[in-house]
């Protein structure tokens, strides 16, 4: 079908279209924004002859929504976070990788092989893992940042200059940690407290943005912001005097994964790309760029010394726990949706 589209495009616009003659194979990725360097895709194309196209999204939920709204069967791989792998698997959106189909599967670190959301890695491979909390511009605020109060009950210097991620799952999870209540709780008083907390905190927040989370901190448009650890490290390397916090209440941990989508139009290419990502050298190159952590044996030796030493990647031993976001039941999710709408109404 895709070929037909391309053919019609060529036919319709002979004068303008240079036909893609050399394509040996194709690969269609649905990926997070700014999460893989173009150079790496180019190298994959050079090595395999497979042409890669990529669309981007800015939250797990947006990816799910787009796929459910008729995009299944058009992408080969997407890169959901842990809880979203579970959801997609429950929705029947993932294909199963048979034993032996991935020749580099043995490279997956044991602790990332038996993961609750995909036991034995039947449909997914680890991509990058990291944490989400917040960063503070140290030129603006020099005080203690070891509490989630920075976001939810900020000091005067930061109030009104805070950017939040535009991601329901992570904002609500962090708010729950701030209040010390369990995620996806069914306790009505706790849910009410969560709603009330967000209502009070909202007055201190300037914007909701995920894809500009780094940019607003670098440009100084925001003085503090909820952000992923590696994204913050990149911001710091771009010259912003920002410090990533590991608050006492804890941080959100996440593992993004490459998943094989059901009805993938280029299944073979997708598996090749997964193997490519499981090569220690390749995933290390990606990790050096993205500034998070890999889940592949042998990748460490290719990591730069700077990356291994970044404060963003080294969680202090005395900081709070790292907690994965949970997928809530339909009933709790309905309440979460309400709270989120209340927050943005």
């Amino acid at each position: 079908m895709k070929a037909i589209h391309n053919a019609s495009a060529v036919a319709l616009t002979i004068a303008l279209l240079a036909p893609n003659a050399s394509a040996e194979g194709k690969l269609s990725l649905f990926h997070w924004f700014e999460y893989i360097p173009q150079e790496m895709l180019d190298r994959f194309t050079a090595e395999s002859g497979i042409e890669v196209t990529m669309d981007t999204y800015d939250s797990n939920e947006a990816m799910l929504a787009t796929l459910k709204a008729g995009s299944m069967g058009t992408y080969d791989l997407s890169f959901p976070g842990d809880y979203m792998v579970q959801i997609m698997s429950d929705e029947g959106m993932l294909d199963t990788i048979a034993d032996g189909e991935l020749k580099n599967k043995a490279n997956i670190m044991p602790e990332w092989l038996e993961v609750p959301y995909d036991m034995g890695r039947k449909s997914s491979i680890p991509y990058q893992w990291g944490t989400t909390s917040f960063s503070v511009n140290r030129d603006v605020y020099t005080g203690d940042i070891s509490s989630t109060d920075i976001l939810f009950d900020p000091p005067a210097e930061l109030a009104g200059k805070i950017n939040m991620l535009d991601s329901q799952g992570e904002v609500l999870a962090l708010a729950a940690m701030h209040l010390g209540i369990p995620q996806c709780t069914t306790d009505r008083d706790q849910l009410k407290a969560l709603d009330a907390q967000l209502q009070t905190s909202k007055q201190h927040w300037a914007s909701f943005n995920s894809d500009t989370a780094k940019e607003v901190l670098v440009s100084g448009d925001a003085a503090a912001g909820m952000i992923y650890n590696g994204f913050s490290a990149k911001g710091r390397l771009e010259g912003a005097n920002i410090e990533y916090a590991y608050p006492d209440q804890g941080v959100i941990a996440w593992m993004d994964n490459a998943v094989l989508l059901k009805d993938a139009p280029n299944r073979e290419s997708a598996l090749k790309f997964m193997d490519f990502l499981l090569e220690p050298k390749n995933i290390a190159e990606l990790t050096n760029w993205a500034q998070y952590s890999a889940g592949v044996i042998g990748a460490d030796e290719f990591l730069t010394a700077e990356l291994r030493a970044t404060p963003e990647n080294n969680k202090p031993a005395d900081s709070g726990p790292a907690v994965f976001v949970e997928a809530c039941s339909q009933e709790v999710q309905a309440v979460y949706d309400k709270i989120w709408t209340n927050l943005k109404k």
């Binding site: 079908m1 895709k2 019609s8 495009a9 008729g70 995009s71 069967g73 058009t74």
Partner: peptide
Amino acid sequence: SAIDFERGY
């Protein structure tokens, strides 16, 4: 998406 018209060009 209802008539299963594959999205593309």
